[in-house]
Amino acid sequence: MTKRLLVTVVDDDESVRESLPDLLKVLGYSVQAFSSAAAFLGSADIENNDCLILDVAMPEMTGPELSVELRRRGYRIPVVFITAHRDYSVPPLVPGQDAVQCLLKPFSEAALIAALDTAIPRN
């Protein structure tokens, strides 16, 4: 039995926290959802995450800030940023580093699968 990959969603928008985890489960992932960076940082097994889907524009701590914080703490977890702000300045994505892709809301299912596939290379 292969272990399901764990994907965590952090977004302050409730509709995203409702809809995205359902789709990811259908796609065969284990999913966690948090409404803020702080809530995620306070959770138990961060290192078990295979991929993080972070909203960019969140109050308190933004998605990019969270990814910087995780790296500072020594985690190497691939990140997919999502944002509704077209003009929002997304930090440049560094391949090999944490961030894999940035998806603009609304994004398609295919774009999501592609971003996840990039983030978690299939064996």
């Binding site: 995203v16 359902d22 789709l23 509704a84 809301k105 609304p106």
Partner: peptide, 27 residues
């Protein structure tokens, strides 16, 4: 930009839900 965000946010929800719906029906 801000206004677009206000629209895109629910749009993102709609599209994601629609995709999920289709997959659930296809299961």
């Amino acid at each position: 930009a801000s206004i677009a965000h206000e629209v895109n946010q629910p749009l993102a929800g709609i599209i994601t839900n629609a995709s999920t719906c289709l997959r659930m029906l296809a299961m």
